[in-house]
Design a protein around this nucleic acid. Sequence first.
RNA 1: UGCCCGAUAGUAUAAUGGUAGUACGACAGAUUUUGGUUCUGUUUGUCGAGGUUCGAAUCCUCGUCGGGCAACCA
Length: 558
Amino acid sequence: MAEVKKEEEKSLNFLEEIVEQDLQSGKYESIRTRFPPEPNGYLHIGHSKSICLNFGLALKYGGKTNLRFDDTNPTTEETEYVDSIKDDIRWLGFEWANELYASDYFENLYEFAVKLIKKGLAYVDDSNSEEIAKQKGTPTEAGIRNKFAERTVEENLQLFSEMREGKFKDGEKVLRAKIDMTSPNMHMRDPIIYRIKHAHHHRTGDKWCIYPMYDFAHGQSDSIENITHSICTLEFIPHRPLYDWFINELEIFPSRQYEFARLNLNYTVMSKRKLLQLVNEKFVTSWDDPRMPTISGYRRRGYTPESIKNFADKIGVQKRENLIDLSLLEFCIREHLNKIAMRKMVVFDPLKVVITNYTDDHELVKSEDNPEDDNTSHREIPFSAELYIEKEDFMENPPKKFFRLAPGQKVRLKSAYIIQCNEVVKDEAGNITEVRCTYIPESKSGADTSGLKVQGTLQWVSIKHAITAEICLYDRLFRVEDPSNEEGDFKNYINPDSLQVIKSAFCEPSLKNAKFDQRYQFMRKGYFCLDKTSSEEKIVFNRTVTLKDTWAKEQKKV
RNA sequence: UGCCCGAUAGUAUAAUGGUAGUACGACAGAUUUUGGUUCUGUUUGUCGAGGUUCGAAUCCUCGUCGGGCAACCA
């Protein structure tokens, strides 16, 4: 009962409302959606919003979703992108009903164009692109129709056929829909629907030298597939009258287009064109560079599909422009990783600690793999008289509320003993080279009879048992919230410190067996995963996200 | 200057003519063998002016502000 109520309280987004109405009114028995990427780049986090919407809607209401590649422009599209897109969708955990291509419909689309010509609603225009642009007018001035619009149906049929046969060069002729050159909607002013491109297509090869424009391919493809709800982003709103016009004149299945606001994330850019620049101009290493907002970038960085889907759910769906806080995405990944990550101890910037009263060679201490898990497993970690702790966890002259190690101060070494610092050793230049401590034997974790209470707990590694690894620390790629909205080139706002590499960090020995699909929390540091380049010879970790750090925040205030 | 979208805390998102709520963030506190997690509390909002109504975030009018539209791109 309580569950039902909860379900009711969760309100629908505007697309869900439309779907429910259409289902209740009997307009459709079931729905069909599609995700229509153009294979000219990798998918980014913005696409994941669209993917979750399209697949999510179908899943929720018992419909199906097609994956359809919008491949009508052979000069920018490649098979590499097709593969990466399929890979990313699968990784997110969605299954498409059919893998389709707009290019599957080239023959249908050609016939549609012929039908339009026969109805006197399309004509072949010999003007070049400058002339066409000029005749189109401006938003405030009507366009004018040129003499080619007066060609007869027979002439148009003949010329269009010759276009297909390859009798003309690129740009020599186009096919235009005959609609209204005075429309206040620029898209209705006799839009170009076919252009000549003697280019090799990634699927149809050299079969075609004319290719349909987006507006003459997308809606018709939706219609051919009986898509009931064709969901796209806001910039296609002015295309909707055209979308409906073609469907109406062609007398085909009436798919309907609905628009939502695309996702924008602060401190990043979200356009394939810009992302391609970052790759081509080597600001990042590749499309899946962990700093990239691509799905493959987030994957390599250690984000989970669950966290991204949860994020998509939390940001909601609306028609207003938005700029989402990165902190929400980070919240989503921390929330998931906190539950699943194995805890490990790693020291990035070592300071040597000598336990002067520890006489054994070493012992093994037990530590839980995940305190969030009631049935957590445990591992054994070697403890000895010579350890590394983090340099920043020691201060010779600490401020108040510094709960870490300092002369005379006690801290607990996680899962081991409480130690007290007695002596600071320096080199001739005055740099601290090691600190000498004593441990309290009765304070062993799990068997503490010392009665001591300390405020700080540190991670540590035994020097002679430690293994080393390279660690990549990532930060936001841009220094400003909205790089695309700043003056000048967005690349001027790249954060120069978006990547910091620690060549040799000291890790507890169990990380020797780190697995590619396992997520780790390096205690008090953040969440990490193995990079795809990692090998037995050289272990490489990527930082997915830091832990929340209220101490750092506190210090910033000072 | 034409047409089309949109406007609710810092950021998102609910309330569908009837108590402006939720999440993230921020701030404060409790708990803690991670300055993590968890828990509690606090803070801040209906773009403006009119109108309809017993009652308006919601309906109407006029403004204001933001975004989009003039690729042989999608």
